[in-house]
Simulated assay, not measured.
Amino acid sequence: VECGSKALHSGTFGGIVHEPLLDLIALLDSLVDSTGRIQIPGIYDSVAALTEEERKLYESIEFDLEEHRNNCGVKQFLYGTKEEILLHLWRYPSLSIHGIEGAFHEPGIKTVIPAKVIGKFSIRQVPHMDLLAVKKQVVEHLEGVFSKRNSPNKLKVSMPLGAKPWLADVNDLLYKAGRRAIKTVFGDDPDFIRDGSTIPVARMFQSVTQKSVMMLPIGAADDGEHSQNEKISRHNYIEGIKLFAVFFLEISKLH
């Protein structure tokens, strides 16, 4: 949202200009409600229906809500059961707001009205959402909210990055080889899960090669991806080396 060509002092201009940060906050506030449900019309229309077979997969997964909450460092999740948490974590779309560019954010006081601010958010894509349709829904929603504010400021909505959802067939031979490898190294049968990761190359590889693609992570839920103290445990690193060796051995048995 852009107001003018330069930042202004709030003591001199506050109360007489349409501040872009107020417009932007109103726009961001319109995207999702306090329960986590996305407020963009039509956003859920194309989401694949939950089948009974898929629901049973979530019921069988071992998942400690309290441990996961402690690892996250939060007081409470949006949902109270394991199944609801996993469904909204893995198979339903979500909207997260990541930051505001252009606004004063450093320690101390600075009574400035920014001339231009940029809000950044992402929407998790899930089967069978269409990227272009979602973009159209988002733009129409934001432009509609903005028009109701009767603001003379300029609004521009853009999507610098977009990745289509990707879903693999866990009954493929590649996954069966991975299951056997994990059982050999870790002594436990693996859970087949979904995850929210921006890795568009997975779908691209599968589409171009017409071959099965598999994600075989060796990290843990508390590794803190993208956070200040991202890590991987030495145990998982060492056992992961063994896992890939056994996995390649299992693949060789398929041919």
Rank of each mutant, 00 (worst) to 15 (best):
L142C: 03
L142E: 06
L142P: 03
L142D: 09
L142V: 05
L142G: 07
E143K: 01
E143H: 05
G144N: 10
G144L: 08
G144A: 09
S147F: 04
S147W: 00
S147K: 11
S147T: 03
S147C: 06
S147M: 06
K148Q: 10
K148N: 08
K148D: 01
K148A: 02
K148L: 09
K148Y: 01
R149I: 02
N150C: 13
N150G: 14
S151Y: 10
S151F: 05
P152F: 15
N153W: 09
N153S: 10
N153A: 09
N153P: 06
N153Y: 10
N153T: 06
K154M: 00
K154Y: 04
K154R: 12
L155T: 03
L155Y: 01
K156F: 02
K156T: 12
K156W: 03
V157H: 04
V157T: 07
S158D: 08
S158V: 08
S158N: 10
S158P: 05
M159I: 13
M159E: 13
M159T: 14
M159P: 10
M159K: 12
P160R: 04
P160T: 01
P160K: 01
L161C: 13
L161H: 15
L161I: 12
G162D: 05
G162Q: 05
G162M: 03
G162H: 00
G162P: 06
A163P: 01
A163F: 07
A163M: 10
K164P: 15
K164Q: 13
K164W: 07
P165N: 07
P165R: 04
P165M: 04
W166M: 02
W166T: 02
L167W: 13
L167I: 13
A168H: 03
A168L: 00
A168S: 13
D169R: 02
V170N: 14
N171E: 11
N171A: 08
N171K: 12
N171F: 00
L173C: 07
L173T: 12
L174V: 08
L174C: 04
Y175H: 12
K176R: 10
K176C: 06
K176I: 04
A177L: 00
A177E: 04
G178M: 08
G178R: 11
G178C: 10
R179Q: 12
A181M: 00
A181W: 09
A181T: 05
I182P: 07
I182M: 13
I182D: 03
I182W: 08
K183D: 14
K183L: 15
K183Y: 14
T184K: 15
T184P: 06
T184N: 14
